[in-house]
Amino acid sequence: MPSAAYLAAVLAIACGITFALRAVPFAVLRTLRTSAIVRRLALWMPVGILGILAVTSLRGAIAAEPHTTLYALLAVAVTAGVHLLSGRRTILSVGIGTTVYVLLVNLL
């Protein structure tokens, strides 16, 4: 088992770097709030970043169960369909999509 000092050092590194990555940009951007480029990026980024997170997490789910690619794609379609057709209730859409995937993976 690794020494307590090593574990503590790992915790300090994870804490310091993660917090700095999250905090420093706020401090930098505060001085650039009026810049046109920063305001444009603030508007343009969310939809793209969320899309990228959706795709990479889909790949993560597929990598965990490689034979389930088709099920995962089907479950994504179900999630999006439920969301668009039944009033954009996030919990409902995520719940149904996940249930479909879990059932497909475990029962088929």
Binding site: V47, E65, A72, T90, N106
Partner: peptide, 18 residues
């Protein structure tokens, strides 16, 4: 098995909302 898919479902839904 497969619960980790909920993360992907969440990001899909939020992309649509954004």
């Amino acid at each position: 098995k497969g619960l980790e898919f909920s993360l992907c479902a969440l990001f899909t839904v939020l992309t649509l909302d954004a």
